[in-house]
């Protein structure tokens, strides 16, 4: 379903060139729970960002469901992200002026879903991630684990084809991190979305159904469990 072919990406910082990806190719099937792991600077976040259409590659191609997403114009990319992708960030990235419910509902608002359906789906997903009764709290009134649950609910509420999570457990303690991963695994099985993680957390790697190891912008190993 996701086909990454010969992806190259180089960053230029002043006089220094950093080759983030050097010809990465990968096939990801629908519903996979996959970790892209590697040390800092290995290119895992770059790869995640390019798959998520928020960064561009220098060369190579990515097709999702048979369609190339590399040549989409800016607005078309935004529409693609809105309709097909969900993001979970390391530091949650919730909108501080919105409540938990509104943060989740805003994903559907952007898609033009009507108010009644938005409310029903948002409340249901918040219940599913264990935040029933906390819908009206703003992010500042929630713990890190609760905020990450809201972020997951925000990403999954629109039933995305792909959910991209960049170091989702890095800001959480190990117990909360484990709970979050269990929740994501459960949602992966229930919603059949493809979950792609960029991580260097061994716990995330243990949870993954497939582990792709990157090193210096190249795939070092690709292991299915």
């Amino acid at each position: 379903m996701i086909s990454v072919k010969d992806l190259f990406k180089t960053y230029v910082a002043g006089d220094t060139e950093v080759k983030a990806l050097r010809g990465v190719s990968l096939e990801i099937e629908r519903g996979e729970f996959i970790s892209i792991a590697g040390p800092s600077g290995s290119g895992k976040t770059t790869m995640l960002n390019i798959i998520g259409c928020i960064d561009s590659a220098d060369s190579g191609d990515i097709t999702i469901n048979g369609e190339s997403v590399m040549d989409l114009k800016r607005d078309a990319q935004a529409a693609f992200r809105r309709d097909y992708l969900g993001f979970v960030f390391q530091s949650y990235n919730l909108i501080p002026v919105l409540t938990a419910f509104e943060n989740v509902a805003f994903s559907l608002n952007l898609m033009g879903v009507d108010d009644a359906e938005t409310k029903e789906r948002s409340m249901a997903i918040l219940k599913e991630v264990g935040l029933e009764g906390m819908e009206n709290r703003r992010p500042g009134k929630l713990s890190g684990g609760q905020q990450q649950r809201v972020a997951i609910a925000r990403a999954i509420v629109k039933n995305p084809e792909i959910l991209l999570a960049d170091e989702p457990t890095a800001n959480l303690d190990s117990n909360t991190g484990k709970e979050i991963l269990e929740l994501m695994k459960e949602l992966n099985e229930k919603h059949q979305s493809t979950f792609i993680f960029a991580t260097h957390d061994p716990m995330v790697m243990d949870f993954a159904g497939r582990l792709v190891q990157l090193h210096d912008g190249e795939i070092q190993s690709d292991e299915r469990r």
């Binding site: 607005d75 992200r81 993001f87 960030f89 909108i95 805003f106 994903s107 952007l110 898609m111």
Partner: peptide
């Protein structure tokens, strides 16, 4: 960045 990633247009 977050809003852009969520699909908000320019």
């Amino acid at each position: 960045g977050t809003l852009g990633a969520m699909g908000m247009t320019g």
